[in-house]
Amino acid sequence: MPRVSKPTDHAYDTIAAELRLRIESGELPAGAPMPSESQLCREFGKSRGTVRRALQLLEEAGLTQVGQGQVRRVRGDEPLPHAPYEKVAEALTAEIEAGTRRPGDKVPSAADLAATHGVAIGTAQRALKVLENRGLLTSGGVRGRLVAGSPDGSLELGQVGQVAAALAATIRDGKHPVGSRLPGERKIAETYGVARVTVQSALTQLAEQGLIERQSRGKGRLVLRQET
């Protein structure tokens, strides 16, 4: 009997991540129908099984839902949920940025993080890998993972202000002109190598300065004016 072929890689994670970015940026706004399986197969050059798994991940994350006529759409008004590993990564990042965990401090193991946050060990391991990729953690050999930087506190803090200033500069320089929308939180986080909680705080600062305002669900943040 011929074997049924199954996806052998994690291409579905890549597809799901790309579609999530489109949702967060407003390219796929609330209520919009998701691209069909056939369209996604053609776009990404992957099998229907891989595409279905990617769409299932989005539904499990609460980003999409199947409505009347079995049409899959972007969900409505509630804030976008974070993936479990993102929540763990952002909680750790917030502790580092607040100085609760100082450069050179040992970070809890994946098992300890899993128990603390009520997630799987694999989820905690993924969160730790994210922080390593951001340069916030480093390997301490037998000591495990450590907060990056030296004990004198040379790790950069004040990231919220730095991101807010950088975004204000893009508005001032015309990269994001008045009336345009800023990129989604996840895209900004990837651009500046920070956590989404950092981006959210930076965006709050810009909103308090009257530079941007948050639009309705799925429409992102609108640039109101340039700095004077």
Rank of each mutant, 00 (worst) to 15 (best):
L19T: 04
S5K: 12
N133R: 15
R186D: 14
A189S: 12
L58D: 00
G62N: 05
A127N: 04
Q125N: 13
D173K: 09
P7N: 12
G31A: 02
T123E: 02
G104Q: 04
G161I: 09
S38Y: 10
P81V: 00
A168K: 11
E190C: 01
L63T: 00
R181K: 12
R143L: 15
T64Q: 02
R172W: 09
R145K: 15
S180Y: 04
C41I: 06
D105T: 02
A169W: 11
Q226H: 01
Q159F: 07
H176A: 10
E59H: 08
G140N: 07
S180P: 05
R20L: 14
R186A: 14
T198N: 14
M1T: 12
A32I: 01
T198W: 06
V160R: 09
A61T: 01
S47F: 00
G149M: 07
E37P: 03
R221H: 09
V130P: 00
A195F: 01
L224H: 00
E24D: 13
G161V: 03
K187I: 14
R48C: 00
D112S: 14
E60G: 03
V178H: 00
E60Q: 10
V74R: 01
A30D: 01
A91G: 13
A83C: 02
K46S: 14
G144W: 06
A114E: 07
V4Y: 09
L206P: 05
T170L: 14
G193T: 12
T64W: 03
R143C: 06
A94F: 12
L203A: 03
E185D: 15
S38M: 14
G62V: 03
D173M: 12
T170S: 15
Q39N: 05
V160Q: 07
T50C: 13
T198Q: 05
E95F: 10
N133S: 13
G220P: 01
K6R: 13
G140I: 05
S139A: 14
T93E: 15
A124K: 06
T116S: 15
T123D: 03
E24S: 02
V130C: 07
P84L: 09
S47G: 12
D9T: 14
S180E: 11
R102I: 00
Q162D: 11
A189M: 08
V130Q: 12
Y12H: 13
A124P: 06
L157H: 12
K175R: 14
P79S: 05
T50D: 02
R181F: 06
Q162S: 10
V130M: 13
R186S: 15
G210N: 05
A91V: 11
H82W: 15
L92V: 06
A189C: 08
